[in-house]
């Protein structure tokens, strides 16, 4: 199950970055993946739709968001936390 969440988040980011899921490193940043601010907002929307969760995120203050977007790893962790909280 956990494995599936990881894969599904990676698939969303890979699609946004237009690369293969195998090429998404877990320590990669959004910059590394070439995902800009619009791409990020679109990825968050895709994550909300995929997992049926609400992601608290304001593009004006990403640093203040409880949704940590510093790397693929932290995004996966944040999705899991939100899923547990919002179940």
């Amino acid at each position: 199950m956990t494995d599936t969440i990881d894969k599904r988040v990676i698939a969303i980011l890979a699609e946004q970055a237009v690369i293969e899921p195998e090429d998404v490193r877990r320590d990669a940043t959004l910059d590394d993946l070439g995902i800009d601010s619009l791409g990020l907002v679109e990825s968050i929307f895709a994550i909300e739709e995929e997992f049926d969760i609400q992601v608290p995120f304001n593009a004006n203050e990403p640093q203040n968001s409880p949704f940590d977007i510093s790397s693929v790893e932290t995004i996966i962790a944040a999705v899991k936390t939100l899923m547990a909280e919002q179940r």
């Binding site: 907002v41 968050i44 929307f45 995120f57 304001n58 593009a59 004006n60």
Partner: peptide, 20 residues
Amino acid sequence: EGLRVMSKDGCRPFSATRNG
């Protein structure tokens, strides 16, 4: 809302505390 640029609590232009 979808664009994630709106403030939920107020418009504070030029202030370091602005959030949309």
